[in-house]
Design a protein around this nucleic acid. Structure first.
Lengths: 189, 189
DNA sequence: GATAACTCGTACAGCGGTGTTCAACAAGAG
DNA sequence: CTCTTGTTGAACACCGCTGTACGAGTTATC
């Protein structure tokens, strides 16, 4: 593999992330142009649109993974969760449109598969909080995780619709999620 | 307006609701066929796909409105909200795909406009509960309403993905929403 | 500097959708 | 019964997208 080919593959993946994050229906042609590459060259590296979207999502998640690594998950699980949710929210908001593209391009289950890493991180923290008695145990962790994701995605929609200020979002999300995770009978923080 | 024309308009709108509820990208041709009507006839009544989707969504919401009218909203606001959420969930689940179609066909804001009725119903109950001190006042009602909607939509997604049983959904949603609405410092029911 | 790897633009075929036209035909309303 | 209003299928032009083919040009690499 020649060095410039590798460089182009990288540029295309980066452009795909950028374009699809703006418009989930961005065409292959647009992405090629954004990468500074001919459409044919792109097809040389990614046989189909689906594989391109897959690569873009994988790249975005990998980037996010690195960012989330910097979040301190020790100490009070509620505080830790709040920190993790804040950081995750940043990412969800940024890649929201890309996810939409993936949803009607990738085969069902593939997205879940790519999200295993981030979900695991969340699950570990959630389980620690459950052991400490600060998070509820009457609902499955998978449901709680998807609820957090849904709240974040919803916030992104509200911002897009102009009904919510981006500066308020993080606080709203944290408050809502922490309340939703509180075990029945316990006080909301 | 001739009687059979009126009948056709009705059949087309009903078919649009049905088809788009199955597949958000159902073509005009499919809908016409489902209505037992020629494609040209359809275009005679609905000048464009957008107007057809608009009519379908409006119809679905009107139908839902009638169903929600049967829900008893008196008594303990938390119990009432639980009842309302259960009924709403039924509808959201049914029309989830139609909403998706509307989201990338109708101009931004139009969907919100059509949802004013249902949102008002929820808002009134929410405000009564706030006056009674059982729902939180530290977040805007609009945010709380959208959170409820997001939890329901998320549940629909989970069911579609096979990660959640439809029979569990209603209970999960109620528990989650009631916790999320609990004022800070109060106990989760 | 030779050679294999890579890229480029253009052009093409195919697909599935939308919206329109036309001329023949059916069915309500008076 | 008549006439206006509707309905019908087939055909058409149009659009933007995907994926492929080709021949000429360019650039890493040895």
């Amino acid at each position: 593999m020649r060095a410039d080919a590798q460089r182009n593959i990288d540029a295309i993946a980066a452009a795909a992330v950028a374009c699809l994050s703006r418009d989930p229906e961005a065409s292959v042609g647009e992405i090629a142009k954004a990468a500074g590459v001919g459409r044919v060259t792109l097809y040389g590296h990614f046989p189909s649109r689906a594989e391109l979207v897959d690569a873009a999502l994988a790249r975005a998640i990998a980037d996010g993974h690195a960012i989330l690594d910097a979040v301190d998950l020790d100490g009070d699980p509620r505080k830790a969760l709040s920190r993790l949710v804040d950081a995750s929210w940043e990412l969800v908001n940024r890649f929201r449109s890309l996810l939409l593209a993936a949803q009607h391009t990738l085969p069902p289950g593939r997205i879940q598969e790519l999200h295993e890493g981030p979900a695991d991180r969340m699950r570990k923290l959630l389980e620690r909080g459950r052991d400490d008695g600060v998070f509820r145990t009457d609902l499955p962790t998978s449901w709680l995780i998807s609820t957090m994701q849904n709240v974040m995605h919803g916030a992104a929609d509200e911002i897009n619709a102009g009904r919510l200020e981006a500066t308020d979002a993080a606080r709203y999300i944290s408050s809502t999620v922490l309340a939703a995770l509180t075990p029945p009978g316990k006080r909301v923080p």
